[in-house]
Design a protein around this nucleic acid. Structure first.
Lengths: 129, 129
DNA sequence: CTCACGAATGAAAGAGCGTTCATATGTTCA
DNA sequence: TGAACATATGAACGCTCTTTCATTCGTGAG
């Protein structure tokens, strides 16, 4: 393993009771969540979820151009979701820490379960008539 | 209480080990996550996290125009994240179920923890030289 | 040094999204 | 039925974001 960030996270810890978000927190959280709100970045993170990977191979595995992938990796880096380490002429990327992995897992988990209740309906019908 | 969806979710269940996302799943998950990737919708959901609320009051509480709020509520409804129930001349909104609440909580939890490791640095510095 | 490879950057095009304004639908009450 | 309130809808502007193309920077080998 290369290095997984500060790694001091119980990954499955139960979130606190909850507090209503203020405008500031909302903006911050939204900013980071946008990173997970795109198929390309989601694919990148999901691949990285399985282990570190060099930039070019990563691009190949998720089926995108080197440049596009690099742009997204930069974004993910700036958000602190992934880290890149130079290794020879390649840069190996990895998830920053367990929070990222957990967030990913849980997002997929909850969303897949949510989708069990709906197809692609316009949800006009969901308003229990 | 109005109606909270199918409500058959252990909210804090541990996500499965994880599987690499295919392009399709990535698109679906990304689609739903986009709902959480905006301050306005995040504020709406966060408010709803505390309990049901009528549309107009909701708009007021999160500080947005009625129209804008309604548009976002429609989006959230179509994604199956919230449900609206007519009550007299108002429509009371609520989170669809515990998956939504859990997703929200965990997103906030993990993201706030992630941010502890960074300020607003360009993360160029994070690449452990 | 020079060449080849890997990765990052910048500019620009194209698409998608959120907000606003104006208006329509639906509901209650007199 | 008509007025007032609550919510939803449609069109459009502006903005942001993702991708592509071309180029540059960095690294290792001959």
């Amino acid at each position: 393993m290369v290095r997984m960030g500060h790694g001091a996270a119980p990954a499955n810890a139960v979130p606190r009771p909850h507090t209503r978000l203020d405008a500031d927190s909302a903006a911050r959280v939204a900013g980071t969540l946008q990173a997970l709100a795109t198929p390309s970045r989601l694919l990148i993170l999901s691949r990285l979820r399985e282990g570190p990977c060099a930039a070019t191979e990563l691009a190949a595995e998720v089926g995108m151009e080197q440049s596009a992938c690099s742009h997204q990796l930069r974004l993910l880096r700036n958000l602190g979701l992934v880290v890149g380490t130079r290794q020879g002429r390649s840069v190996v990327y990895a998830l920053y820490d367990n929070h990222v992995a957990a967030l990913l897992d849980q997002a997929v988990y909850h969303i897949e379960h949510l989708r069990l209740g709906l197809s692609d309906v316009d949800a006009e019908d969901l308003q229990e008539g």
